[in-house]
Every structure is written in structure tokens, then in C-alpha cells.
């Protein structure tokens, strides 16, 4: 029996694993793996396969910011409608409804900080229902998607080849 959770955990950790490798690890046939993956893709459980890039290591660093939005929810559609408008912008990387001191957490990527500032001022702030915005720029990424990015803390294998281990 193939457990979807185990399959998904493995793929979430490393999307490059082949059906053959997955079948060995999960103790099911390659065919079962293939059809389970196809089904999960179709059902929208698997939303895609991407590469985790540390752009800070590439010459032109991009800017990213977390924007806190306070908004007035619509009577019928609540926060959904306003969130829907915001997430249509290609500059917006993620939108989430939050508990606590503000409503929507929006991450925005741009070439420069001023691009992002302009985007917030021209596109987000004027949206009907947006009460206030607070822009926080990302200065350094220490860890993302469960992976450590900061070079000083990066995983290194310092295990020697001890005879007596």
C-alpha cells in the first residue's frame, strides 16, 4: 500500500527523485508511484516542481519585501475578493490571511527596493478596502523552505573517516 504522505514528504524534500528510487524507498512498484504522482498532480495536491535558488549568490540581487496590509473585509466575500485582486499581480509572490495585528501578509519581489516601494504605493495602497500598508524589506535570507541559506550556518559535512566509529 502506497501512503501518499510518505510519497509527498519525499518529493517535498527532493523533487528530483525518480520513480525507481521512490519505489525502492517506499516498497511499492514503480507503476504505483507513477500513477500516484499523476493522481496527486491532477487533484492539485502537488502544485508544481521548482528549484530553490539562493539569488544572493547570483550577481544581481533582487529585492523582496513583506507587506503588512490592513484591510476592510467585504460583506459577502470577506477577505477573498481583495486577496484575489492582490495575487493577480505578477510581482506578488505570496498572499496569506493572518491572525494578529494585521490582515494580509503579501510578499513582493522586484528588481530594486524602490521598484517595490513604487509598486506598493501605486498598486496596493489604492485598492479599495486597503486601510494601511507597512513595507518590510528582506535584508538577508537565513533560511527558506527549510533550507539554510546563510553561508556561515550552511550545512557542512565535517565528519572525518575515523577508523573506530
Amino acid at each position: 500500500m502506497l501512503e501518499n504522505e510518505s510519497l509527498l514528504e519525499l518529493l517535498e524534500e527532493d523533487a528530483k527523485l525518480t520513480p525507481a528510487q521512490l519505489s525502492a524507498m517506499l516498497g511499492v512498484s514503480e507503476e504505483e508511484v507513477r500513477s500516484a504522482v499523476a493522481r496527486l498532480e491532477k487533484e492539485g495536491v502537488i502544485k508544481g516542481y521548482r528549484t530553490l535558488v539562493n539569488w544572493e549568490r547570483v550577481s544581481a540581487p533582487a529585492a523582496t519585501a513583506l507587506i503588512e496590509l490592513k484591510v476592510t473585509p467585504k460583506k459577502d466575500t470577506g477577505f477573498d475578493e481583495i486577496a484575489g485582486r492582490i495575487m493577480n499581480f505578477p510581482e506578488v509572490r505570496s498572499v496569506a490571511l493572518m491572525s494578529g495585528g494585521f490582515d494580509l501578509a503579501v510578499t513582493v519581489a522586484g528588481k530594486t527596493m524602490s521598484d517595490i516601494a513604487m509598486f506598493v504605493a501605486r498598486r496596493l495602497a489604492p485598492i479599495e478596502g486597503v486601510l494601511s500598508t507597512a513595507t518590510h524589506f528582506v535584508l538577508t535570507r537565513y533560511k527558506e523552505g527549510g533550507v539554510i541559506f546563510h553561508s556561515e550556518y550552511e550545512e557542512i559535512d565535517e565528519r572525518g573517516s575515523n577508523l573506530c566509529d
Binding site: 559535512d157 565528519r159 572525518g160 573517516s161 575515523n162 577508523l163 566509529d165
Partner: peptide, 24 residues
Amino acid sequence: GIRRFFDIANEMEDVISLSVGEPD
């Protein structure tokens, strides 16, 4: 007998080791 072997491995570049006996 394997000290020498490890010494060689440690000197080489791009070695993939499956030799250690401690958790990663």
C-alpha cells in the same frame, strides 16, 4: 589497514564518501 586508504581519500577532490560511521 584502512588508515592509508582514508589518507588517500582525504587528499582527493570531489570524493563522495559512504565511509563514516556516525550520523549525519
